[in-house]
Design a protein around this nucleic acid. Sequence first.
RNA 1: GCCUGUAUAACUCAAUUGGUAGAGUGUCAGACUUCCAUUCUGAAGGUUGUCCGUUCAAAUCGGAUUGCAGGCUCCA
Length: 490
Amino acid sequence: MSIQQDNKLQQIISHAKEYGFVFPSSEIYDGLSAVYDYGPYGCELKKNIRDYWWKSMTQMHDNIVGIDAAIFMHPTTWKASGHVDNFSDPMIDNKDSKKRYRVDHLIEAKAEELAQEGKKDEEATLLKKMDELLAAEDFVGLKKLIDDNNIKCSISGTANWTDIRQFNLMFKTEFGAIASDNADDNIVYLRPETAQGIFVNFLNVQKTARMKIPFGIAQTGKAFRNEIVARQFIFRMREFEQMEMQFFVRPGTEGEWYKFWKEERLNWHLSLGISKDKYRYHDHVKLAHYAKEACDIEFEFPIGFKEVEGIHSRSDFDLSQHQYYSKKKQQYFDNDINPETGKPYGNYVPYVIETSIGLDRMFLLILSNAYEEEVITKEDGSTDSRVVLHIPAKIAPVKLAILPLLKKDGLPEIAKQLLEECKPHFKCFYEEKDAIGKRYRRQDAIGTPFCVTIDHQTKEDNTVTIRYRDSMKQERIPLSKVKQLVLGEI
RNA sequence: GCCUGUAUAACUCAAUUGGUAGAGUGUCAGACUUCCAUUCUGAAGGUUGUCCGUUCAAAUCGGAUUGCAGGCUCCA
């Protein structure tokens, strides 16, 4: 990574803060690590990205419908999904080798060693004690057990250990205002992914919306992960928003649908006018146990190529797990005729293709792609600079700035009339302060694609100057065409 | 989590061996101004991230802590 690129992320962070896109969370209290708030322009941009995704998924595909599931879900959901078991192990680090171990693995390895030395009794005692301590979640006791048995790191060969810590990716909270006798009864999690809200509603949606396979369920919403290391601005946050679509297909057809969505999703990105060179696929070689195929769509951020979206062929893993844990059938009856047998395909648990994109990452993608510090040469040969956000017009926070050239001679009145006309259709910004050039630059900095200026000539022939953000070109168009022109571009 | 760096006004940065914190930009009010950061007048805005210590005196020295950035590690 070059110094220049490092600076670019810095500049984007500064710009995002200065112009009201992204603030550190609770900044007056020194912020909260890896949590950010979206400001006035940021939340408009974020909402526009979300809307654009939502529309392209649910409106442009007539076999995809949306839901909005709760963030709280029944705790068993996360047992079924595997999150409880996979993300809550006590871990310990060796300070010399910097190697991190799962505590149970570390102690079991020592037990194995004892067994090979023929010390069967000691092995049994050790394992028994470990089980007791693990069950009691006695981390101090476990640490002592490691020390007492002189367990060493296999790499550094030292016994210089950190304290034992529980790493749990999921945030826990208590459900219900009254504490139960058994504290565990009250635990609920903040969802670490939105996908499960779709899976548990699979049959509700399929039946009520009368969907036939293949069909998809889309959802946007917050998810929470207690990341060990959360950094790189809004790229990895502890609270983030996902835009997910689970596409349910007949087993055996998942390969072609995986291929379809892989292309379809990249095309969505390109439809925003972003260069294809900035994107690449990263096909997963090491697959999760349930996945058949998986890839990431990566974008060249200022911090290098990073995942912005994942496309996964998840087989019937999730629905089958929920079927097992809930003891409720998660099957679909397929009336289509199987040409091989001449009979309907019948009952099966559908396979799933998932497309999952991080909204906050998409936001950072748009900012990174849009941010430019431009040096412009003026007519007299002197140079000037401007900071401009080349945000696609469709998702720009403000679409049109309406600027009377002077704040007198009736110009503001005409401008305000135009504002009233356009306001119901798209986000506008009105300003009469300062010189016109300064106002243009301010709009460049927040990525407003169009500015119109009302001048004295407007009073004579009802034309205005429209000025384009990216080219800085100006042209005169009839006042009455302004709304139409902007609507055509967004 | 470990290591490194860093923190002064909204932003970018000054402040000599420790000696009462300044500038530019921006913001706000007003005047001027006929198309890309014009000019003029005035104003607001900082217990120097936080806490503790050394000192007659700390933005400056020391310790701790928090945030941010990077490297490693971890995770998806």
